[in-house]
């Protein structure tokens, strides 16, 4: 099997973000997407903790300890950036002002359900953050994740088994093995990572992949 690395996957997602978009990147893998915007496009990144226009990482020694993104990484303001408080930040998200959100997930179901805040392990504290607000307010929800769990179990399912973050909200899923759209029929293949066959990817996917 040919697996995209996290940075290759981020670069792939970045290809699909149009010029002029306002984008929220979830914590973890999705934060890498901002490093791969194709030349000539201006994309404005929103971080839920109160900045729109998230710029590059500061040079070492130039960090401002009170200027971070949602992943708690030090950032800089891009030209045209603004700071604001939390109620305004979530008005941007819930109120439909952000165009695209890229999220990580534990599980995605064929009907577009997403689970990314809690597991079935009661000793593991749940942590929802801004995910439930994003999935109800942002029209395009892209998910970026590994195709399967470390133990080999599938993450692309007929139905999620973990508690849901949102119902029927995912537009497209990018994994290390394939890109899949959510359609009324279920998962539909957009592309396979070069070197993989549909049969190989289907074998690692619980839900049916339509072509």
């Amino acid at each position: 099997m040919r697996n995209l690395t996290d940075t290759e996957l981020a670069a792939r997602v970045a290809q699909d973000i149009p010029d002029g978009s306002y984008v929220n990147l979830g914590i973890g893998k999705p934060t890498h997407v901002s490093g791969y915007v194709p030349e000539g496009r201006e994309v404005i990144y929103h971080a839920e903790n109160g900045i729109i226009g998230v710029g590059p990482t500061p040079a070492e020694g130039e960090e401002d300890l009170e200027l971070i993104d949602a992943s708690k990484r030090y950032v800089t303001p891009a030209p045209g950036a603004a700071y604001f408080e939390h109620a305004d930040s979530f008005a941007m998200m819930r109120g439909g002002h952000i165009d695209i959100a890229v999220l990580g997930a534990y599980q995605v179901a064929q009907n577009g359900d997403i689970a990314n805040w809690a597991t079935l392990d009661n000793t593991f504290p749940p942590a929802v953050g801004g995910a439930m607000d994003l999935v109800v307010g942002v029209p395009t929800i892209l998910v970026m994740m590994r195709h399967i769990n470390r133990d080999g179990s599938p993450k692309l399912l007929r139905e999620c088994t973990y508690p849901l973050t949102g119902l029927g909200v995912v537009s497209r899923v990018y994994t290390d093995l394939a890109v899949l759209d959510i359609t009324p029929a279920g998962f539909k293949l957009v592309e396979l990572t070069a070197g993989n066959t549909l049969d190989e990817v289907q074998a690692l996917t619980e839900a049916k992949i339509h072509t």
């Binding site: 839920e48 953050g129 995910a131 607000d133």
Partner: peptide, 8 residues
């Protein structure tokens, strides 16, 4: 646990 926007 409260969703962040709901908390705000």
């Amino acid at each position: 646990v409260v969703p962040q926007g709901t908390l705000a």
